[in-house]
Amino acid sequence: MSGVKRLWQARLPDHVIALAWSPVNSQLSAAAVSGPVTVFRADGETERELAGHAFGTAALSWHPTDSLLASAGQDGKARLWNGTTCVELQGGAPWIEHAAWSPSGNFLATAGGKKLRLWDKAGKLAREYPDHPATIAALAWRPMKDRDSLATGTYGGVFIWKTDADKPQRKLDYQGSIIAVACSSDGRYLVSGNQDSTLKVWLLKSGDELEMTGYATKIRELAWDATGRYLATGGSEVVIVWDCSGKGPRGTKPAMLVAHEQRLTALTFQRAGKLLASGSEDGRVAVWRLDKPKAPVWTEQLTAGISQLAWSPDDTRLAVGTASGELEVYHVAD
């Protein structure tokens, strides 16, 4: 790797709870857990500050092609920002913890409590799904641009929803509390990270399911690489990477990436490239190449626990947020 250098840094008033890069103009939006949202220009200058959500902001999502930023928060609302004007969306629950644009850009999904809602680009309610049986703890669009489909995780299992039907297309049962969901880019796999320190893997075509145990803590960090081959998981201080090629990870030994001293808090692969970034509670950031798993290709020690990591749309920048509100952006040349 030819080098990593810090481009700029900024400070948020509180724990960085969400980071999102705009695919349009490389703006970076960042939210503090207590509410305030800042949009930074590519050079690190503050472009605008947005009113955050009362009781705290929880999620940010940029539209894939338009300059539209969605935010959601503990006030039960989502907001759709176009520049400095916004449309307020009623999430239907006392808190809204998830907001995510579909890959096609046709829908914004919001989830809070047991309510899952879809909105169009104008902020008009497009669909309200029937209540989930329990709080929606995780939400992920399946990475297929041709037909939008999303997965939600709750206590009891994962639901897969189409955007044009109220009934779930599929329910994947699990007798436990699901706290993270991720879909592989090739559509073969859906995985959930669970409160009970297990990883559940579903092969969607065959209906086969695997359960990976032995994790130290609950698994909140899940990341698929661009090809759908590698799945990186948290749940301890070691990055566990499963190779899901061929017949899948059943019976295989995962790669164990060791660089962190405390529990992992963030994991993310480049959107198209091969680099994996990991962050941990002890404030360490590491960047890995999976063909050299023995040591990270780069690490940096920050002064507070890492809370968020995000690669820029062109994969050349890595944004790092911490529990004390530090925000650092690095240029990463492969």
Partner: peptide, 18 residues
């Protein structure tokens, strides 16, 4: 048996500076 909502709420509360 545990209270899932408490894990969510308190987890979020403990992230705050105040």
């Amino acid at each position: 048996t545990v209270r899932g909502d408490l894990i969510r709420i308190l987890g979020n509360l403990m992230k705050r500076r105040d």
